[in-house]
Each structure stands twice: as structure tokens, then as C-alpha cells.
Design a protein around this nucleic acid. Structure first.
Length: 441
DNA sequence: TCTGGGGTCCTAGGACCC
DNA sequence: TCTGGGGTCCTAGGACCC
């Protein structure tokens, strides 16, 4: 038995973050892309969501709409890829497997980054450990990563940013017991501090706070008033006071969202039903995979964010209508992970939300009230049917896992439709689909 | 006309993250 | 013409309770 009151060994936090993750994944499987500008596009080929260093140098911005850079892309011979989440997800789990070798305490923070808790040691030793992490990830996955080490998560983020930016391409920076700490904070503009977004940084700038160093020196009460406890925590973290502990990712997820922008506007209720059915199927699969059940299902549907041209009778006036956005929530009564039950609720919600004469550009479902499905309350009636349904679901999942998505599917939906996203330039799913593995000649 | 005080729970919306 | 998807946390305000 461990004595729970024993003195805690002093520990530090490392943040490991892949460089240009999606673009780097593409490079692992196509080395011809090395040294060339590469961009990866969002779903529907709408926005640029990843850029290689060369593409950044051309001035292509993060989140920039693709049509705005199309000419530049052509001129500069930039490689363009549609997003391939199946490939990136698989590469992500390989990355995390390597990181786990270095510490039992880790938090997978996003698809391409993780925090590791490390035992504190001499600054030189920590730096060496960081370099070893970087090198092993490279050897075992082919991915380039940067490592930042510090006393708190927020400072580890600062360290990681600076490591990425360093011209010497060291890609490892240790700020624990570092005489460089203050200078590092001075070189970190306020908007780059983790937790300070566009809104707050504009406000802070108007008060003359331009750097992380100045923010660290701000008065506690003032920060609390202006930015609530969230802002105060960030300031404390910059002062090496740990406020944010490592979380267990997925320990208790609160919601699941499945949503897509449509390839073309959707006007009819049949097409909207088809799309929502598709999202609901994906959502139910996510639930079962994570062993969760949902107590409520919401759907939302909206027009484009930027303008909206009404059609037919609604557009007769010729005036542009306001962008429309609506949502409907259905209480499921008892938590469920059954595609059939969720589908019923979703269709009910579609009927409630649909309005003719609106060109929907995006829709989605949100599952909430999540709880482990093993703890789901027992049904008082219909127990036999419910058990039967669960059995059916697990068989369908097994078949689809083996033979591909939607080999067997529930209900009425067509898997084709104008609402499907465009993905014109997707690379092969090299690691997860047999027909797409690499062939060597 | 006058009209307490304190608590909980829920939801919508804002801000942030990658 | 063409602008992603999936999450979290916090707060304010209303409904409701005693």
C-alpha cells in the first residue's frame, strides 16, 4: 500500500507537439513532398488547416479560405491535399504510443500533442531527455515534433512555441530553472499565451499589456474582474504556480458532435433527413466505441455564415434573407447508444426544425447527457426488445469494422447525396484500408 | 401601494482550444 | 462561385423551491 500522504516528488511538465502535423503525415507517406510547400484543406476543401514551413513562408494563413489562395498555390506549385482524418488519426495513436514510453502520467491533449509529467532533474538532463523524446518519435513514426518543458502547462506551451520558432531548429526548450525564463516571456506576445484568445488579447493590449511578461505582473484582482477565474489561473501558471493538472482525456466526455458543411446547399426535407441520418449513425458508433450512452440528442441546421440567397417563392422579393440557424433538442428519456432509438429522435427533430425555402449549408447532431453505457438505467418495459437491439448493434459494428463503413446500415438514408462533402485530393488511407496500402514495385 | 432572502438547477451564449 | 470540425469551461439569467 502506498502512503497517500508521502511528500510528492517535484515534477515538471513536457509538452510534445508535432510540427505541422497533417502536412507532416502526408510527407511520411510521400517523401517527394519534403522541402516543398504543402497545404492540407478542411472538410469540403474549404479552408487551409495545415501548412508546411515552406507554405507558411509563402504567406498562406491558418484557416484561410482556399479560394483566396488558389492563385498563389498555382503560381508557387504548392502541393494540395484534402484532409484524410483516418490516416492522421492512426498516425496520432502511433505518436501517443511512443510518448507513453517516457512517462506513466500523460494527457493526450489533441490529435497532435500531449503533456507528459516528468520527474524533475538537472536542467541539462531535462533537455537531454527532451531531445531523446524528439529523436525516438522521429525514428518510430517519421514525424517531427517539438518539446517544451516547464513547471506548468501554460509555461510548457510557451517553451514549445519558442522551441518551434528557434532558427537553430533545436526544437527542444527547457524552461525549468532557466535564466532564460523572463526573456522567453518577454518574447511571447500576449495573443500567443495559451488561454488568451483574440478577444482578450485585444482588450489586454488596450491596457498596455503586450507580452506574457507584462501579463504575469498584472494585479490579481484586476485580472479576475476583467477575465474571470480563467484569466487568473493563466497568470498564476505564468508565475510557475500549477493550477491546471493533467487530465485524463476521455475520462468523462460531456458531448459528442458530428457535423458537416454540405457540398451543395440542401433545400428539401428528404435530403436533410438523409444527412442527419448519416450523422446520427456516425454519432451512435462513436458512443458505442467509447462505451457511452446519451440522454439527449440535439440537431442543428443553418445556412451559410456569410450570405443567404432564398429560392423560389421565399426569394421572390429578391431581397437577401437573414442567415438562418436553428436547433432542436430531444430528450431521450433513458440514455441509449442504439442507432435505431437515436435515429427516431433525430427524425422527429428534423420535422421540427425544417423550413421550406431555406438552403441549408451545414447541419449536425450533438449528443449530451453522456454516461458510461454499463451504468445505463435498466428499462422497466421493453427489456427484451432493448437487449435484442443492443445485440444487433454490436453485430452491425463488427461487420462494418471488418468490411468497411456502411456495409450494413440502419434505416432509410442514402449514402449518396449532394450534401456529401467534396474531398477531391485525398491521399490514400495507407495504414487503415487494405486496398489503399502502399505498393512497392 | 407596500412586496425577503437564499439556494439549486438548467440553458444559452461567449470565449477559448486544436 | 468557393469560408472546417470537435470539443471544454465559465457566466448570466430565468424558473423554481422553501
Amino acid at each position: 500500500m502506498q502512503n497517500r500522504l508521502e511528500v510528492k516528488v517535484s515534477r515538471v511538465i513536457a509538452l510534445i507537439d508535432a510540427n505541422n502535423f497533417y502536412a507532416s503525415c502526408e510527407r511520411v507517406f510521400d517523401p517527394r513532398l519534403v522541402g516543398r510547400p504543402v497545404v492540407v484543406l478542411s472538410n469540403n476543401d474549404g479552408c487551409v488547416i495545415a501548412r508546411s514551413a515552406e507554405a507558411k513562408e509563402l504567406g498562406i494563413g491558418m484557416g484561410e479560405p482556399f479560394f483566396k489562395v488558389r492563385d498563389l498555390v498555382k503560381e508557387q506549385n504548392v502541393v494540395v491535399r484534402s484532409s484524410n482524418y483516418e490516416l492522421y488519426g492512426d498516425m496520432s495513436s502511433r505518436l501517443m504510443d511512443v510518448l507513453e514510453q517516457f512517462s506513466p502520467d500523460s494527457e493526450v491533449y489533441s490529435i497532435d500533442e500531449a503533456f507528459l509529467e516528468l520527474e524533475k532533474s538537472a536542467p541539462g538532463e531535462l533537455r537531454k531527455l527532451g531531445a531523446e523524446i524528439r529523436d525516438r518519435v522521429r525514428r518510430q513514426t517519421g514525424l517531427p515534433v517539438s518539446v517544451g518543458i516547464a513547471e506548468t502547462k501554460t509555461l510548457a506551451k510557451v517553451a514549445n512555441h519558442l522551441a518551434k520558432r528557434s532558427r537553430r531548429a533545436e526544437s527542444v526548450l527547457n524552461l525549468v530553472e532557466s535564466s532564460y525564463l523572463d526573456l522567453a516571456l518577454e518574447r511571447t506576445p500576449i495573443e500567443e499565451v495559451w488561454g488568451v484568445g483574440r478577444r482578450q488579447s485585444a482588450r489586454l493590449r488596450s491596457y498596455g499589456i503586450l507580452t506574457a511578461l507584462q501579463f504575469r505582473a498584472a494585479d490579481d484582482d484586476w485580472v479576475r474582474r476583467k477575465m474571470t477565474v480563467t484569466g487568473l489561473r493563466t497568470v498564476h501558471e505564468l508565475r510557475q504556480i500549477r493550477c491546471l493538472e493533467l487530465g485524463q482525456s476521455h475520462a468523462h466526455q460531456h458531448s459528442i458532435i458530428v457535423s458537416r458543411s454540405f457540398g451543395e446547399a440542401v433545400w428539401s426535407i428528404e435530403e436533410l433527413r438523409a444527412a442527419i441520418s448519416h450523422f446520427t449513425t456516425r454519432g451512435a458508433e462513436k458512443l458505442r466505441k467509447r462505451r457511452l450512452a446519451a440522454a439527449a440528442l440535439s440537431i442543428f441546421a443553418r445556412t451559410g455564415r456569410y450570405k443567404f440567397q432564398p429560392s423560389g417563392q421565399a426569394g421572390r422579393s429578391g431581397q437577401a434573407a437573414e442567415p438562418f440557424s436553428g436547433s432542436v433538442t430531444v430528450d431521450l428519456g433513458l440514455a441509449t447508444d442504439s442507432t435505431l432509438e437515436l435515429m427516431q429522435a433525430a427524425q422527429q427533430a428534423v420535422s421540427a426544425i425544417y423550413q421550406p425555402g431555406i438552403g441549408y449549408r451545414k447541419a449536425g447532431i450533438i449528443l449530451t447527457g453522456l454516461a458510461p453505457s454499463d451504468n445505463a438505467p435498466l428499462r422497466l418495459w421493453d427489456t427484451a426488445r432493448y437487449e435484442h437491439e443492443r445485440e444487433l448493434m454490436s453485430r452491425i459494428d463488427a461487420i462494418n469494422a471488418r468490411h468497411g463503413q456502411d456495409t450494413v446500415r440502419c434505416g432509410i438514408f442514402q449514402s449518396e447525396g449532394r450534401w456529401l462533402a467534396r474531398l477531391d485530393q485525398r491521399s490514400n488511407r495507407f495504414t487503415t484500408r487494405w486496398p489503399e496500402v502502399m505498393t512497392l514495385r
